[in-house]
Computed example of a mutant assay.
Amino acid sequence: MVVYTVTGNVGEAGYLDIANSGDITGKNIYVNMTNRCPCSCVFCLRQTKKMMEGNSLWLKGGEPSVENVLGIFAKYDLSVINELVFCGYGEPLERLHDVCKVIDELKTKYPKLKIRLNTNGLANLIHGEDITPQLEGRFDTVSISMNAPTAEEFLELTRSRFGIKSFDALKEFAALAKFHVPNVIMTVVEKVMPEEKIEQCRKICNELGVTLRVRPFES
């Protein structure tokens, strides 16, 4: 699925193609543009759950073009939705420039559209430069998967291809994003780590001046 909503139990009956979502008024609409990701997190649904054929976010037909994504949106009135969220099974900022193209086009018609990015925070490593200025004016919220309080534990959990430097890069990304995005959040997943480590993550977020959100674990 490229564009979808979430309802019910995620990973079971929870992902609905926008074409099957009925009235989208007040809903969050999710955009899935790539399978690519530099991480292979041990708790990711990609690793832990085989999804039903008609309920999978894996893009078997390859990455959708910008035109294809915009063509899907052209069928709907996005002024009635709550929020547009770029996420999916892959890391959205693997396709940074295409994501920006989609947003810029949508903003011409819906200038007040609320847009969130769910990211692993490693885009600067992916692209070899600071890309956070490109988030400005496009995203209202950036939600970064933190997942651990130390570089060693982060690497053990995420198995990032960038190695031990990934955690510092993630923190730097959060600090830089604050200058360009109104709301920067870092997230951890409950039950993946003990409460004392969650509190360590909270302390790091406080030092960075961003908000920590504890996400529910999807079993």
Rank of each mutant, 00 (worst) to 15 (best):
N9V: 13
S21N: 13
G22W: 03
N28A: 12
N32C: 10
M33L: 11
R36T: 12
C37Q: 08
P38W: 06
C41K: 08
K49A: 14
K50M: 11
M51Y: 10
L57V: 06
K60S: 14
K60A: 12
G62S: 04
S65G: 11
V66Y: 05
V69T: 12
V69E: 09
G71R: 07
G71V: 06
D77E: 01
S79R: 08
S79E: 09
V80G: 06
E83I: 03
C87N: 14
C87H: 15
G88S: 12
G88V: 12
E91T: 06
L96C: 07
H97P: 07
H97G: 13
I103C: 08
Y110A: 03
P111H: 05
L117T: 14
L117Y: 11
L117K: 09
G121A: 08
A123F: 03
G128Y: 05
E129K: 14
E129D: 09
D130E: 02
I131K: 04
L135W: 10
E136Y: 12
F139N: 04
V142A: 09
S143N: 15
M146D: 11
E152A: 07
E156N: 10
E156A: 13
G163D: 04
E172L: 12
F179H: 14
F179Y: 13
P182W: 01
V184F: 07
M186S: 05
T187S: 11
E190Y: 09
K191M: 08
V192F: 00
V192D: 05
K197M: 13
Q200R: 11
C201L: 00
C205S: 05
L208C: 05
T211F: 08
R213V: 15
F217C: 06
E218Y: 11
E218R: 13
S219N: 15
